[in-house]
Design a binder for these strands. Structure first.
Lengths: 202, 202
DNA sequence: CGCATAAGTTTCTCCTGTAAACATGGAGGA
DNA sequence: TCCTCCATGTTTACAGGAGAAACTTATGCG
């Protein structure tokens, strides 16, 4: 009972600890210098320990991306409670949530859409990405049913809004939305333009 | 006069050769395993030679990104000759050119918008990016003058269309525009939705 | 108990970026 | 013409990362 929590040799749940450390790094480090050894170091284990839980670096990255999609989905769902005034308002809230998520986790967001995390290989990652995308699809379908959105193919609306939100997020975390280019409040401005194309009349 | 062209020791224009090799690699390699030593190897020089022309890896990357912006601008300009039927058609052509450029140079396009190529540090890179962005701005302003686009703040149109095109390009090169998600022809579909928001009436 | 095994550690090889020291050959002045 | 300087190469060296292999520990199960 000497050092109950210092170093029990067997960490208990190293896998989780490594993931947490890595997520911290991805939220903090803008510079994408993601090193497996650095993760191990910050977690307080030897540099080979992670290999007992992840076949290689890529596998850890994919798991991180998967968690990223899950969390992004949670953020978006939380941001648009069903009692909101309009579907359009829900859309705006979800879009802002997505972009906010990207800005608060730039490294993670980049990872989620990088080729490092190849979704064609990992079915779990693919499913997570699809589930998050499904939130958007559901919102659009609801909006079409209640007449908020134009009755064009829902896949067209999905492609447009997904690209718009993703594009804004990527540009934002790359610090490319400079005022000299796109004015002082580019995100709501851009979303408004898009919504004008998606909504009826007005 | 033994080996006139094999190895003149002094390469002549190694800087250019390195850049060309690197551009090839960025067009070919999807996997973003961009190694300075590999560039040197493929160019046929020692791994330290590049350091005579670029202070470090980042400096080469920034130069590549700069060239990328120049070429992207050229592609877009070529794609929209001034005698096109409508400004809307010009916009579509420029957008397709941008996305096509990304698909043909995925590594380069990623690099251009990665944090590795920090535009806040390199004024030349910043200028090149601004110039390319200026093509879009010019098109939008022309479209507003001739009544094709709504007379809202041009920065709003710029933010929306830039985000849309960039988003589509990023999703395309990440192989995320799967038919199960966004239908068979997501790019024109998405651009149409956006244009409906940017154009008058109809 | 005693041992099989999961979970850590050390050690090793190969690769990368980068610095320093050395080599070469072409251009400009004596 | 020749010598010397210097830009542009090469070799060598070192630190740090990915990952494999061999070794160690402690833990759960008979």
């Amino acid at each position: 009972m000497s050092e109950t929590k210092d170093r029990p040799y067997h960490h208990g749940d190293l896998r989780r600890a490594l993931i947490d450390t890595a997520l911290d790094m991805l939220a903090t480090d803008q510079n994408w210098a993601f090193t497996l050894r650095e993760v191990a170091r910050r977690t307080g284990v030897s540099h080979a320990a992670p290999y007992k839980h992840f076949r290689d670096r890529e596998m850890l990255l994919r798991e991180l991306a998967r968690i990223g999609f899950v969390r992004l989905g949670e953020s978006m769902t939380e941001a648009m409670p069903p009692d909101m005034p309009s579907t359009r308002a829900q859309f705006m809230a979800a879009a802002r949530a997505c972009i906010g998520f990207a800005c608060q986790n730039p490294g993670l967001y980049r990872l989620m859409f990088s080729s490092d995390a190849d979704k064609t290989i990992d079915p779990q990652l693919h499913d997570a990405a699809m589930a998050t995308f499904g939130i958007l699809l559901g919102l659009l379908e609801r909006g079409q049913r209640d007449g908020s959105f134009r009755p064009v193919a829902v896949s067209a609306l999905a492609a447009a809004s997904w690209a718009q939100v993703h594009g804004l997020a990527m540009l934002a975390i790359s610090h490319q939305l400079l005022e000299e280019k796109v004015g002082p409040a580019p995100i709501p401005a851009a979303l408004d333009v898009l919504l004008d194309g998606m909504c009826h009349g007005n």
